[in-house]
Design a protein around this nucleic acid. Structure first.
Lengths: 136, 136
DNA sequence: ACTTTATTGTAACAGAGTTGCAACTAGAAG
DNA sequence: CTTCTAGTTGCAACTCTGTTACAATAAAGT
């Protein structure tokens, strides 16, 4: 982070929280975890920092099909884009990488003359575990 | 709409607004248009009806990469899923259908044992028109 | 160490969407 | 056509996520 941006204590903390997260966190969860490392940190700073990281392509913002209200979730941008699958019954989020997805992005760039900066493919449905119990 | 659901004047109005929309509308735009047909109609009814239509798979909810705040947009569910491309500069939304996308969904269902109910693929980037003026 | 200016925290705000509840009404039954 | 009842509406008050203004603070270059 150069070019007029400053690496502050707060940003280091928030970055650390997002980097080490084992799952997708929303803004208030990130705040809570950040406050365990630095109790002074404020809500506003979390939002501002997430916006910054998003604009710079370091984290991606997800909706996860809005299963839990209007929250947004964050993850550090992966090497390779992946698909998020949200089970509408149990709420489990799984991820999936696919050559076909990469090829689809290539097709969009070519056929639509559209330069892709970020993609978000979310799928809602029923995972294998929940499908079996459908008759319940 | 059967099974205990009632076709009320308000629902008919909201449905009509969404069906005849020439572009993606958010909840407050839908409210405004619905009020021109029925001035009594309330915000809450719009939200409740959109929720209902969404649950029954008659409309899809979009985020359009959150370019205009946290609004959600709605469109009647199309015959065939399509991709939404949002230009991060001019804000234009374009749509795109693709065999590759259909095949990708097939792959997900097979490889992940995941039964797909709804998909949302949104792409942010720069349209051909805005790319040319990048040096501006 | 000094200065500049990006960044922070506080507080107040904005907007999307939700909930409780009494009043209303679509649609079925008689 | 009238009655009944449970689905639906409108209102008001609320929750929650995220934003803005601004004075105080502190990175980072000199």
């Amino acid at each position: 982070m150069s070019r007029g941006l400053r690496m502050t204590r707060q940003r280091r903390t928030i970055l650390q929280v997002v980097e080490t997260a084992k799952q997708h966190l929303d803004a208030s969860q990130i705040l809570r975890k950040a406050r365990r490392l630095d109790p002074q940190i404020d809500r506003v700073t979390v939002y501002r920092t997430l916006g910054l990281l998003k604009r710079h392509g370091l984290v991606d913002e997800l909706d996860l099909m809005h299963m839990q209200g209007e929250k947004h979730f964050y993850e550090r941008r992966p090497q390779r884009d992946h698909i998020h699958m949200a089970c509408l019954r149990c709420g489990k989020i799984s991820e999936f990488e696919s050559d076909l997805f990469d090829r689809l992005k290539g097709q969009i760039q070519r056929d639509c003359q559209f330069h892709i900066a970020v993609t978000r493919l979310e799928v809602g449905g029923y995972c294998s575990h929940c499908r079996t119990g459908i008759a319940e």
